[in-house]
Structures are given as structure tokens and as C-alpha cells.
């Protein structure tokens, strides 16, 4: 086969161009850490996109779950406080139902019960960043007015725990502290106890002992329900985190460059480029013009 000068130069240009292109690609891969930059770089771009969206979705669900957990922590703490208050109310009722106490003692205790009732009302109106947590979905409304009457609504707010699965993360004060779910009105029970103490009515005080115990049980049940929801959120959060990690890993397998492989490819491409330049220089070397003088 005749090898002409033009063929020699053209092939050198093509060879060096190809080596330069391989080098540029290897450099880009090593410097960005990505082997897929454009949709046409891999036939797996639909999967890459899908895994990215999957991971983002699971992280977004966890963002909402995390925010709800913050609210639930507050509600849980609030209900624990109510239980403590009601237990103190029960202790006072048991103590002052005893005949060894007189009317003055009971009047003094009544003042404490009034303070306990105010504390329950304060706790029931717990808020976070301007949002009342025991108003159902009426977050902008104080759950209970000063008279202890429920002002919230019967709505419930749900968040997504996983695609297609939701959980109620709102709470109604009238169910936890009132009669809406078949329980007793805790604030009214404290009012009754205070009135009984003020009236020095030991029979009524004894009746309040049961009410206090019922109230404690009622709020404790609500607290355990909150705990159950929190546990559900924690489990969902962990599961979502795992799913996001799996999606990230699968995406990384398809799109990320292996560092060692990328560095090796770059070194190889550099060597190939140098070899191409050297071969080009050599191929220009021997010429009849050099010997004809």
C-alpha cells in the first residue's frame, strides 16, 4: 500500500485528535467524579434520573416526618406535664378527703388546685412557632378558652410516612382533655375538686379522687398514643433513610466514576497522548529530502 505524505499528515491529525479526545474525557471523569454527564453518555440515564428522584422523595418524606416529630415531642412533654398535674390533684384530693384536715386546710388546697387547673390550661394551649398543637387543624386558634371550653376543630392533619402511607400527626384537646372521645373533662374535674375543697365537702372531694385517677389514665392513654405515633415515625424515618441510601448507591453505581479506575484511565490517556505525539514526530522524521543534498 502506498503511503502518501498527505495520508501521513491526515492520519497524524486524526490519531492525535482521537488521543486528545480520550484524554479530555478521562480528565473530565477524574475531575468531576462522574462518568455520566449528559443523557447520551449512558443508556442508564432513565434509571439514574429515577434513582435520584426516589432518593429525593424519601429524604423529603423524612423532612416532613422530622418536623412532625418535633411537634410530637412537644405534645408528649405537654401530656406528661398534664399527667403530673392531675396526679398532684389526685394526691391533694386523697389527702384532703381525710377528716384530719379542716376547712382552712381545704381552702388553701383549693387555691393550689386552681393553680393546677391553670397549669393544665396553659399546657393544653401549648404552641410552637405560633401554631397551637392541640387544636386539631385549627392551628391558629387557642384550643381552650379561659373557661376551659374547646375552641379547636375536629379536623386531623396527616403526613406521608412512605409513598401511599399516611399518619395523623394532629391532636385534639377535646379528645385528650375533654369528653369528645368518651372521657372526662379534665379541666372541669379540677374545677369540681377546687369547688369541693372550697365548700369543705369531703364527699365531693372523694368523688374527685376517682375523676383525677380517670383523668390521669385518660391523658396517659393519649400520651401512649403519641408515643406510638412517634415510634411509627421513627421506624418510617429509618426505613426511608435506608431506601434513600439504596437509591443513592444504585445511582452512584451508574453515574459515579470509580476513583482508581478514573485515575488509571487518565494516566493511560496521558501516556497514549504522549505516545501519539512521539509517533507523529517520528513519522515525520525519515524523508528523502534529508538525504538528497
Amino acid at each position: 500500500m502506498r503511503v502518501t505524505d498527505r495520508a501521513l499528515f491526515e492520519s497524524s491529525i486524526a490519531r492525535n485528535g482521537a488521543a486528545r479526545e480520550r484524554h479530555a474525557k478521562a480528565t473530565a471523569e477524574a475531575s468531576t467524579g462522574l462518568k455520566v454527564q449528559h443523557p447520551w453518555d449512558s443508556s442508564a440515564t432513565p434509571q439514574i434520573t429515577r434513582y435520584r428522584l426516589d432518593a429525593d422523595r424519601m429524604r423529603a418524606i423524612n423532612g416532613a416526618v422530622g418536623a412532625a416529630r418535633g411537634d410530637l415531642d412537644l405534645v408528649d412533654g405537654t401530656l406528661a406535664g398534664v399527667v403530673n398535674v392531675l396526679q398532684r390533684g389526685g394526691e391533694l384530693a386523697v389527702q384532703l378527703a381525710n377528716d384530719t384536715y379542716n376547712a382552712a386546710d381545704r381552702a388553701s388546697a383549693a387555691a393550689e388546685v386552681r393553680a393546677l387547673r391553670d397549669e393544665v390550661l396553659r399546657l393544653a394551649n401549648i404552641e410552637s412557632a405560633g401554631r397551637y398543637l392541640l387544636s386539631g387543624t385549627a392551628e391558629g386558634t387557642r384550643p381552650f378558652d379561659a373557661a376551659g371550653s374547646y375552641q379547636g376543630d375536629a379536623g386531623e392533619r396527616r403526613i406521608e410516612l412512605a409513598p401511599g402511607s399516611t399518619e395523623v400527626v394532629s391532636f385534639r384537646g377535646d379528645e385528650i382533655l375533654g369528653t369528645a372521645a368518651g372521657g372526662i373533662d379534665v379541666l372541669a374535674a379540677l374545677d369540681d375538686l377546687a369547688l369541693a375543697l372550697e365548700a369543705d365537702d369531703t364527699a365531693a372531694i372523694r368523688t374527685s379522687i376517682d375523676a383525677m385517677h380517670t383523668g390521669v389514665g385518660q391523658v396517659a392513654v393519649a400520651q401512649s398514643k403519641v408515643g406510638g405515633v412517634m415510634l411509627g415515625l421513627e421506624i418510617a424515618e429509618a426505613s426511608n433513610r435506608t431506601l434513600a441510601d439504596v437509591a443513592d448507591e444504585r445511582r452512584a453505581e451508574l453515574t459515579d466514576a470509580d476513583f482508581i479506575e478514573a485515575a488509571t484511565n487518565l494516566a493511560f490517556a496521558e501516556r497514549a497522548l504522549e505516545a501519539s505525539f512521539a509517533a507523529t514526530a517520528k513519522s515525520f522524521g525519515p524523508s528523502l529530502l534529508d538525504v538528497l543534498r
Binding site: 429525593d56 422523595r57 429524604r59 423529603a60 418524606i61 423532612g63 416532613a64 416526618v65 418536623a67 412532625a68 411537634d71 412557632a129 401554631r131 392533619r157 396527616r158 403526613i159 406521608e160 400527626v169
Partner: peptide
């Protein structure tokens, strides 16, 4: 969708 989910919590 992430913003919608964040909003769903509050």
C-alpha cells in the same frame, strides 16, 4: 414535591 411535604407538616 419536597416543599409540598414540608408544608404538609405545617
Amino acid at each position: 414535591y419536597s416543599a409540598l411535604r414540608n408544608l404538609s407538616a405545617r
